[in-house]
Amino acid sequence: MSRLLAGILVLGVVLAVIVGSQMGSNETATPTVTPLELNIYSARHYDTDLALYDKFTEETGIAINLIEGDSDELIARIEREGAQSPADLLITVDAGRLWRAEEKGLFQAVVSETLETRIPEHLRHPDGLWFGLSKRARIIIYNKAKGRPEKLETYADLADPLHKGEICMRSSSNIYNLSLLAATIEHRGTEEAENWAKGVVANFAREPQGNDTGNIQAVAAGECRISLANTYYVGRLMGSGNAGDRTVADAVELVFPDQEGNGTHVNIGGAGVLVHAPNRANAVRFIEFLTSDWAQRAFSEQNHEYAVVPGVEIDTPLNAFTFREDALNASALGRNQPEAVRIFDRAGWK
């Protein structure tokens, strides 16, 4: 081999070693950059939430990619996507639906001093799997023109034969009713909960139907005298720009039940970070943002929900009502859901 050829071969080997070394060094030295995006699957369909997303992006530079849908459909989708799911965060309404995702192992635990300080213990999962971000009370309403019915201070009173033929309700499959019965199971036991459900069924003025707004309208129109509704539905009617809606709100009175007992049943809209979240840090940051005073006021003033963070000053028609809420941990609303379904079935609450 000539000296020239041997020299070229040696030079080639040296260059290959240097280049390979530099490539390895560069790959090792390249910092990991957190993508400025967050993928949210949400079952909340409120303009309020769009404003929250825009504000978060404005403050952080983190772009939000949003997919909306029915809670159960989104949970099924996340389950199908598995480890390849792009979803970072599931937002939904009602602790019962958060429990459904929890049971399928879709959430990961989050430890956050901000969340543990800002959100009361009973409005978040004991192990940090999900967090309540807004709340609503499930209250009794009655027809104002007919006057306040006798014995109507507690949820238990709805089962009293005094109210036979006076109550209209929505379906037992509705998550709000399931959660109320789940709370009843936790407080009073299965037997008393079933007796209550049977008593309410015996007092129906009609077959269960409609939604909360429809039942408020039915009470206002005198089709029945008593019903249950979440406070934010009443708040929307009270604060509506439509005169007809305000007329409906004016035709009903509100009872916040169990003020001498466990307190009025409350439920939550909440969120959990998903187990395969590709942007976990951004998801936690967003949940923390939703506990800010600004975000809590947005939930309350724009959608008539209650703030979960104590002490946040809000301006809403619901301010006219003060009440003591049930401090039962919201996780019980999911844990007792299967038994609530069975009780409703046995009671004939369709």
Rank of each mutant, 00 (worst) to 15 (best):
Y53F: 06
E68P: 04
S25L: 13
T117M: 13
H125K: 05
W130D: 15
P126E: 08
I67S: 07
I62Y: 03
P120T: 13
P86D: 06
A43I: 13
A76Q: 11
G96Q: 15
E102K: 14
G69Q: 04
L123N: 12
V93S: 00
A83W: 02
Y41C: 00
R124L: 07
H45A: 05
L90N: 06
I62S: 04
I91H: 09
T28Q: 12
E103Q: 15
L36D: 08
I64W: 06
L74C: 02
G61T: 06
S85A: 12
L106E: 15
M23E: 00
L36T: 04
E68H: 03
R44I: 15
Q84I: 04
G82E: 12
G69Y: 06
G82R: 12
K135A: 14
E116W: 02
G105S: 08
G24Y: 10
P31V: 04
E102I: 01
L129Y: 14
R44Y: 11
G132R: 08
L129K: 15
Q84E: 11
F56T: 11
S71R: 14
K104W: 05
S112D: 02
G132V: 13
I64D: 11
R124A: 06
A43E: 10
E81F: 02
T30D: 12
Q22H: 01
Y41G: 00
T30Q: 03
K104Y: 04
I62W: 01
L66G: 00
N65A: 02
I67R: 13
E81S: 08
E59A: 12
W99Q: 13
T48E: 11
D72T: 02
E37W: 05
S112F: 12
T92G: 05
G69R: 07
M23S: 00
I119A: 13
Q84N: 14
E58Y: 04
L98N: 09
A101T: 12
H45T: 10
S21Y: 00
T117P: 08
S21L: 02
L38A: 01
D47I: 14
R124C: 08
S85Q: 03
E37Y: 01
L74A: 15
R118P: 10
Y46L: 13
R118K: 15
F56I: 08
H125M: 07
F131Y: 15
E68D: 06
M23T: 03
S112Q: 13
V93C: 03
S42K: 06
V110C: 02
E73W: 00
K135R: 10
G132H: 09
S71T: 14
R77S: 00
